[in-house]
């Protein structure tokens, strides 16, 4: 297996954490993994993104110019990264904040209202967890159980965040594969 995904959004949306939890989960499953952040001046405000590569054999290039999959949490991220995607990948769009579509018909665009889902769960900051759950639910690249363990490890000193975040991940995983949320575009085989 070889999977690459870029998480992108505003600074403060928990982009880095979402990617890190995915990477941790993959590591726990004995997979090879690399997590690469954006860094430097671009971290100040603006778009934050990180890339995660998960594979069963050693990972060569850690640099991914054309990501296979993206999870975009805000409009500038969709506009920036959707055109760079390889064909046939998954583009998970946070439809709560992104009114537009990618305009591409050779990718699988999944619209998941991450912020609305998080608000409905009474955990408005957990839109990133909803998105992470959604991506894992769609790709099955790691098990949801592994992600849950990663969450427990991450928040071991802040136990009160564990259950709400796990709930958001589970909800995202559940919704991402339902027909109401998933929008299939013509010409693309899911």
């Amino acid at each position: 297996m070889y999977l690459e995904v870029k998480f992108a959004g505003f600074g403060g949306q928990g982009i880095m954490l979402a990617g890190k939890l995915l990477a941790e989960a993959a590591m726990m499953e004995g997979k090879q993994v690399v997590w690469i952040p954006s860094y430097g001046p671009e971290m100040r405000g603006g778009t934050a993104y990180c890339t995660v590569v998960i594979a069963t054999k050693p990972i060569g290039s850690p640099i991914i110019n054309n990501p296979a999959n993206i999870v975009v949490m805000n409009r500038p991220s969709l506009e920036k990264f959707a055109p760079m995607m390889k064909p046939n990948g998954i583009c998970l769009v946070n439809s709560s904040l992104i009114p537009i579509t990618s305009g591409r018909n050779d990718i699988i665009e999944i619209r998941l209202p991450c912020n609305d889902v998080a608000i409905a769960l009474n955990n408005p900051k957990a839109a990133n967890m909803v998105a992470l759950g959604g991506f894992v639910g769609l790709t099955q690249c790691v098990s949801i159980q592994s992600v849950e363990i990663a969450v427990k490890n991450e928040f071991h000193t802040k136990a009160k965040f564990i259950e709400p975040n796990i709930a958001a991940i589970r909800k995202g995983a559940e919704l991402a594969v339902t027909d109401e949320v998933r929008v299939k575009y013509e010409g693309v085989k899911v």
Binding site: K20, M27, Q32, V33, V34, W35, I36, P37, G40, P62
Partner: peptide
């Protein structure tokens, strides 16, 4: 380089 420094790996 910054890439080795910034990226996370097991």
């Amino acid at each position: 380089d910054g890439l080795i420094g910034q990226m996370m790996e097991p």
